[in-house]
Design a protein around this nucleic acid. Sequence first.
DNA 1: GTCTATATAAGGATAGAC
DNA 2: GTCTATCCTTATATAGAC
Lengths: 201, 201
Amino acid sequence: MSGPSTHEDWSDAQEEIMQATYHALLDHGYAGLSISRIADELDKSKASIYYHYDSKDDLLLTFLRYAVDQFLSSIDTETGGDPYEDLEHVIEKVLPLRLDEDEDQIHSVVFGLRGQAVTDETFREQFTEIDDRLAETLRTVIQRGIDDGRFRDVDVDRVTEHVVATINGAMYGRVTTDRSATVPAVRVSLLSYLDAELRRE
Amino acid sequence: MSGPSTHEDWSDAQEEIMQATYHALLDHGYAGLSISRIADELDKSKASIYYHYDSKDDLLLTFLRYAVDQFLSSIDTETGGDPYEDLEHVIEKVLPLRLDEDEDQIHSVVFGLRGQAVTDETFREQFTEIDDRLAETLRTVIQRGIDDGRFRDVDVDRVTEHVVATINGAMYGRVTTDRSATVPAVRVSLLSYLDAELRRE
DNA sequence: GTCTATATAAGGATAGAC
DNA sequence: GTCTATCCTTATATAGAC
């Protein structure tokens, strides 16, 4: 998660605070997040946090963008090959059978925050962006398949929205329920759906 | 939402506290929920809440079950007719083009709480139950369609999980993003998918 | 059952030393 | 930049009157 050059021009202290916030969220959830608990995950005091951020809100806003960027990176997929294989790669990337620890933490934190979007406009904008990005990737691949003549001339937006919803529902189920059969079933079913819907006979 | 006999044998005061909690959640979200804010939505004092509940946790647990029950009622659908029409009815019930105010509030509160399931086992159990129930309804209808010979002999669990994920993703998108095109697109696409996947030629 | 008043802790934020 | 100490507000929870 913290590999080399994770974030632009930030100081080490700022990066450490973001990581501490990550861990505080994993331990206590958003509702239980406090500056004290972030400091507990840090080898620094509460006051030092206020040197870097004006307020808890300021920190949270910065963190939200930080987490969203990490999430977007984690689901980013190279496309441009065979359109159907591209779709396979996207699905494999967003719904791997097994998430490694870092990915699992990113998903947990991001989906743990997403509920805030119901009552907070700032959060909603971020999650709108996440879904827009995923949709854009899918739409581009599908459209290219149609233009190439490899896919049938379907309603691109309709198929795209269907796939985005299914992917989100499966990711969401993974982190908020104990229904472990969901992800494997959806992976298979989604590919079968795309094959039937898009591929020319 | 509060029609006649909403909840078993509760006192009026308890029902009022549940409703106040509802509104406090809509106004402030789960992270901003406090006993004071619940009391503000009530024409009673903070202390009166502690007469009915031992602690905030006790109240929250009761409320979680209350909200989950309301949500389950709101998506409950009569089945037993033509299997394909039953599926149409379920989708129409969980993904109506327009939610009335009460339904919208139930969805907002329930999805606002669901993020807690990431870090809280008690919450996760409730959302596992919600998804299990929806899956059970769908699985039963699809299985009956197969047994009747109206549907093809598909992998029932695979199709069921796909539909549950898609429905959840669409409901989730509705309350956590500004992407208003999702629900209408998914409704259409889901029915088209089920038609292609299930119906005998 | 509900109220006012209050005890006690935790949380956000700042002052001032180093 | 980071620390300790502290201020003020909010929060959970209880005591005791009505």
